[in-house]
Amino acid sequence: MGLNTVYKARTWNLSDLNGISNRTLEIHFKLYEGYVTNTNLLNEKIAELIKDGNLDPTKTAAFSELKRRFGFEYNGMVLHEYYFDNLTKDGSGDPSKDSAFYKAAEASFGSYETWKADFINVGKMRGVGWAICYQDPVTGTLSNHWINMHETGNVAGYKPILVMDVWEHAFILDYVPADRPKYIEAFFSNINWEAVNSRLIATETAKA
């Protein structure tokens, strides 16, 4: 998106989730809004620096460090949107066996259970970041990835299919830090599989 783009914070009709308190959701939405605000702010500041069609050599450092921060703020904004989009208060736990996701997980991992064990263990990894199930747009294959912070580890061009926030803010009000696995369990019970399924893209390999 260009420098003149102004992002608007989205809202979600999410409350009364299983094992994720309304207070956590409330602060989480606020934090998300912070990423939107700061993405817009970076764009504004960069636009100002570059408005004459060239960069004042004395502003190179300022330009560079603002640009360097794009990865953090943009990913912080976008990943939260995927996260809230793949939650629902009417979660069913695991996806149905005839769903596109279930089949894709089977095709990529041998079984849905293996995919799930892999994803959960990514979510338990030490440090702050995200567990993301990505789909390779060429082969249709799923793979689970650890993302440090927001910006380190995202695979270029891959499609985020299931996105789980494991920053401390996502669970620390509801669980002691050592109980992250309980939050992950709660997260699973609130997954909006319909939304997840709709993110999958059909490829020749995936259809086969």
């Binding site: 602060i27 702050v128 401390e168 803010h169």
Partner: peptide, 13 residues
Amino acid sequence: VWEHAYIKQFGAG
């Protein structure tokens, strides 16, 4: 200033 240092008592902001 990790979130674990303050968020439980002082909130995210």
